[in-house]
Write a protein that binds this DNA or RNA. Structure first.
Lengths: 334, 334
DNA sequence: ATGTCCCACGAAAACGGTTTCGTAAATAAG
DNA sequence: CTTATTTACGAAACCGTTTTCGTGGGACAT
């Protein structure tokens, strides 16, 4: 291990407390002594033992990021943004994956109450509504910022996008492309973010008001094979949708797979628009029309808010809304 | 915060040491007392303060994962594997991104010497060869496992894939598709993994021995715009390659972009094969022939090896080689 | 000369565990 | 009944910092 403060004190004939204060640039210590300590400390590459500091100060210098998964490009970009801010602030990032498993999420979160991290960034996992652990977490004195997948029941700091509006625009977009049978590909688990998108979708449809238009909600889950089966049966039926809104990246990919397998042409037979952050959406076959969230900036923003409330406790919860962008590509061209 | 051991001791009229030993299931404590302590502890949801334990025991329960980036699907899958093993073992995962910046990598690593993590999993960043910090790290008493992007100069535990062979097979594959002018898209920064792939590529070419075939090495960097410019100029020239091997996922995507922009047809004008882990390779336009590394398993393996050497110090360095798989898709079909 | 103030530093008590060592009581051995 | 051994627990040191509280000595005012 590295050198300790005790060792420095001994080597310089000082008291431990003096060295500690010198390193902390305390006014109690003369410039002369400080210089002597600093020089020796840097020479010996002294770094305070993180456990000892944490134990004494009650702060760890760590933040937790709790996510459903990391393979989704939205989440990986968000991590990118979070890590950047954290590194600037000298914080360390601990990553926890829930894989949409609420009980795992709960047990992860429970650990946080006993120290280890000073704050939590979180995107909640889908699953039966069991908010007890979230409630507990928010009730604890450790600050939490939710991003993207928030949980509105509890009053917390949130970073979200304009999901309702985006869902609305997505449906509008499909309607403007003459789609007659729209489907919204939902995700099981009562995520608010999904239901907002869905409500926007439904509003656009009810506004359009024209009879002869149908729409359906297809609820998909976490099991890819199951989803593909379900999609295949939907797309084989006579009343198959001719325009779909993918509520998350994953399901859009599954629609692509299904259409490829069934030899359905996108966009001729089915037009597809999806909430997705894929950098390579433009390289897909066909290129995918997306509603792209500012994932990196959301991560940065969430982290920034977290650090703000770490700096001064007792901040009021606020909700930041960032804008998504609809980027039209071939998958919805007429 | 949670309840402390001291509080438990007071509440049960026991000494602190007794409680600690009871919780540790020490033989010194009677079954009766243990039961009493256990019951009370679980009732109060006691968890040991991680800083205090770490300080005393000299172990943190954290491991570090140091990566160039997280947006690459190889790395995100690897994290997935790592996190899974860590969670099973009760360890916590700290993620650090270098963004291919060697000096940042160095400063990140330097922190590790002073505690905070018990072990390090690492994929080194490209960049001028400055192995001092890696040398230091491996010389320290904290175990390190390199995966994928290893640094062979120092004798360490490595988890890699059969890169030479894969590079060889990639070139063979293109040759079998009648490509005449092959290009290897390299990455600046002297990564061994890249040079292995390149050497395999070159071996296949030299074996083929037929005159009239050319090959070139195109070295790309970390700046996407620069790369696109470089690629465009290469692909505009009369002797543009008709078959390329992308050494990493990112450059393959850049080739796609370039070809789309220049209206070059893949695979008619240019055949593309790339080292990539993209789950959606099959959905690209056209679907991409890949050499797919077992990213998830590599992460799992690396983590497993790390924990093994955490359990018993002084393990011999070993190198595990996992096999990549060549999956042919449309981007190289004749 | 005496009292007051500040300066620069040291001693010691935390933080919350773990671990070593000592010891009273209970049991076994003689 | 005495002595040795085990059993079950407590006291205290310790991990490396931070922080509170003293304190000796010099400067200053009275």
């Amino acid at each position: 291990m590295g050198i300790t403060i005790k060792q420095i004190a001994a080597d310089l004939n000082l008291a431990v407390s003096t060295v500690s204060k010198a390193l902390g640039d305390s006014y109690e210590i003369s410039a002369e002594t400080k210089a002597r300590v600093f020089e020796y400390a840097t020479k010996m590459d002294y770094k305070p033992n993180p456990y000892a500091s944490s134990l004494k100060r009650g702060r760890s210098g760590n933040i937790a990021v709790v996510l459903p998964e990391v393979s989704d490009s939205f989440f990986s970009s968000a991590i990118d943004g979070i890590e950047k801010v954290a590194q600037e602030k000298g914080y360390h990032v601990m990553v926890y994956l829930t894989h949409e498993d609420v009980s795992r999420e709960a047990s992860i979160i429970r650990e946080f109450r006993h120290g280890r991290v000073d704050g939590v960034l979180m995107s909640v996992s889908a699953g039966e509504k069991k908010p007890d652990h979230l409630q507990d977490l928010s009730a604890s004195d450790i600050p939490v910022v939710f991003f993207d997948r928030v949980y509105e029941e509890i009053q917390m700091t949130n970073v979200v996008t304009n999901d309702f509006e985006s869902g609305y625009l997505a449906a509008k977009h499909l309607l403007s492309k003459k789609c007659k049978r729209l489907a919204f590909l939902s995700l099981e688990g009562n995520l608010e973010i999904i239901s907002h998108r869905q409500k926007g979708f439904e509003k656009a449809l009810s506004e359009s008001g024209i009879e002869g238009r149908e729409h359906s909600i297809i609820v998909l889950g976490n099991d890819e094979q199951e989803n593909l089966k379900k999609l295949a049966s939907k797309f084989k039926s006579k009343t198959r949708p001719d325009g779909v809104v993918g509520s998350v990246e994953k399901v859009a990919m599954q629609v692509y797979s299904t259409c490829h397998a069934l030899k359905l042409s996108i966009p001729k037979d089915v037009k597809v628009i999806a909430f997705s952050h894929l950098a390579i959406a433009s390289l897909l076959n066909p290129s995918l029309t997306t509603i792209t969230q500012p994932a990196f900036d959301m991560g940065k923003m969430a982290a920034t808010l977290l650090f703000k409330s770490l700096d001064k406790k007792g901040m009021k919860p606020e909700t930041i809304v960032l804008k998504s962008e609809l980027i039209e590509r071939d998958s919805t061209r007429m």
